[in-house]
Nucleic acid binder design. Structure first.
Length: 493
RNA sequence: GGCCCCUUCGUCUAGCGGCCUAGGACGCUGGCCUCUCACGCCGGUAACACGGGUUCGAACCCCGUAGGGGUCACCA
């Protein structure tokens, strides 16, 4: 069996699109599964868009997701000479020819055909030119493009067995003599892509179904160049709720991998979600470790139909596909706490919340506190916002919490400072001890324990709800709890 | 419009002729737990696009229809 070699060939657009990330992921999984190689190739022939920043954006996105490659990045522009050389080889072997038709002429013919509602394909005018005619035009310095000569014998068709779609066939009569080199001498994508894949010895081309229409032409190119045709697998596209292709232009940053990074997604959680968009293992599993996923992945189990990215704009509760969020939550609450801590550390450092003690003397406290609150958070970023009161004193008070837990019981303004004194007197600040003190106070005051407990919650954490209150007090610590309760009155003004 | 691909709950999907009165997950929702919220657990809601065949039997096979998507450049 020949070596499995796949590639991911993004064109640099400044960020890694989640659709591109999914393509990269499938290629990576397939390579890993078969002990093959993944080649990263930057298709930078569009010089306008290909800035270093764009390239960095894509590479960072891949690295963040944990997608590793074995070769590259290679840059398509570096091989332009080779692409053109191959085109001339095709001219010599009779598989391609020079075409002197101008763009204007062709546009005109196309417009005419469109008006008459006729099919349009290049009419092959230059294909019939004799050697002398070609020489004469070249001598006059006329610019030309190189066209591939499609041999259309009766009933001819080109077909291939797609690993996702099955047999796909297309009549040769539906394929025009396509251009492979521009009149300015620059090779076109169709050619470059094939020449690069041949040179990189790509065995399997795994790409989106938007490339399905190119495949027949490319197979013709492989054959004419005398190269083995790779196996193709065309994966379904990802659309939005209106069945439109998701794009940055119409959907904004939601389509960029970087967005998820910024919003505090766990990288593997996003990968896990993405892989499920158009693929399933055939059983009920949805959560996979890397190893499990590599083991389970097969091209044949990729779906044939497009999937929809379930994202409703303007729904604050779901800032992206709810399933993606739920998978992220799953990882957030089940990952070893040390791993969560690593992600929180990076986030805290970026936000100025990090304290060196969290890696040293306060390590146990730090881990226990993360563990205490993680089950009600959605992303890593929530620790610094919703969970801020555990790590800093400059947290905010939820308006609804103040209203429901404090203002509704004005007496708390007096009671809470009293409680502060009692808590300050405790020599053993344990959950059991604080609970006893609080219940005792509630009983003396003849109010339900919840009134006191929830009042404390809001004063101490700023929130309406949270973990077991007594655990929270221990986590935040006697000093800070007492200090916050003594100043409770300020919240009633 | 031509060509190509696709069509199971709102969404992601299982299903490859009988195990389907169609299973799981997310979402939504009822309940349990409880100091609140979340987690967790138990339950509910909701789908085979339509019409013809083939067959003893069809979500699964065939043919139409409808719908959706992709692609038709000297872009990638």
């Amino acid at each position: 069996m020949t070596e499995v070699r796949v590639r991911f060939p993004p064109s640099p657009t400044g960020y890694l699109h989640i659709g591109g990330a999914r393509t990269a992921l499938y290629n990576w999984l397939f390579a890993k599964k078969h002990n093959g190689k993944l080649v990263l190739r930057i298709e930078d022939t569009d010089a306008e868009r290909s800035t270093q920043a764009s390239i960095d954006g894509i590479i960072e996105g891949l690295e963040w997701l944990g997608i590793t490659w074995d070769e590259g990045p290679y840059f398509q522009t570096e091989f332009a000479a080779e692409h053109v050389a191959r085109a001339h080889q095709l001219i010599r072997s009779g598989h391609a020819y020079k075409c002197f038709c101008t763009k204007e002429e062709l546009d005109q013919k196309r417009d005419l055909a469109q008006e008459a509602k006729r099919e349009y394909g290049y009419d092959g005018a230059c294909r019939r030119l004799g050697a002398a005619e070609v020489a004469e035009r070249e001598a006059r310095g006329l610019p030309y493009v190189v066209r591939f000569k499609v041999e259309r014998e009766a009933g001819g068709e080109v077909s291939f067995e797609d690993r996702v779609l099955g047999v796909v066939a297309r009549s040769l009569h539906d394929i025009e003599d396509f251009v492979i080199v521009r009149s300015n001498g620059q090779p076109l994508y169709l050619l470059s892509n094939v020449v690069d894949d041949i040179r990189d010895r790509i065995s399997h081309v795994i790409r989106g179904q938007d490339h399905l229409g190119n495949t027949a032409k490319q197979i013709l190119l492989y054959r004419a160049l005398g190269a083995p045709v790779p196996v193709f697998a065309h994966m379904p596209l990802t659309l939005d709720l209106n069945k439109a292709k998701i794009s940055k232009r119409s959907h904004g940053e939601i389509v960029a991998v970087q967005f998820y990074q910024q919003r505090g997604f766990i990288p593997w959680a996003l990968a896990n979600f993405l892989v499920l968009l158009g693929w399933s293992p055939g059983d009920d599993r949805e959560i996979f470790s890397r190893e499990e996923l590599i083991e389970a992945f097969t091209l044949e189990r990729i779906n044939r139909s497009n999937s929809i990215f379930n994202y409703k704009k303007d729904d604050p509760k779901f800032f992206t596909d709810p399933k993606a969020i739920s998978i992220n939550e799953h990882y957030l609450r089940t990952l070893p706490i040390e791993e969560v801590a690593g992600l929180v550390e990076a986030d805290f450092k970026a936000k100025g919340l990090w304290r060196e003690g969290y890696a040293g003397a306060e390590r146990a406290w730090f881990l226990a506190t993360l563990d205490l609150v993680r089950s009600r958070f959605h992303t890593i970023a929530d620790f610094a916002t919703l969970g801020r009161a555990y790590f800093a004193d400059d947290f905010e008070f939820e308006e609804a919490a103040v209203r429901k837990n404090l203002l509704k019981f004005p007496e708390l303004k007096e009671w809470l400072p009293q409680l502060a004194d009692r808590l300050a007197a405790l020599s053993d600040f344990t959950p059991e001890a604080t609970e006893a003190v609080m219940r005792e106070l509630a009983e003396e005051l003849k109010v339900k324990p919840g009134v006191v407990i929830n009042g404390v919650r809001t004063v101490v954490t700023g929130r309406l709800a949270g973990p077991s209150m007594f655990e929270v007090l221990t986590a935040i610590g006697q000093q800070r709890v007492v200090a916050r309760l003594r100043r409770a009155g300020e919240l009633f003004d």
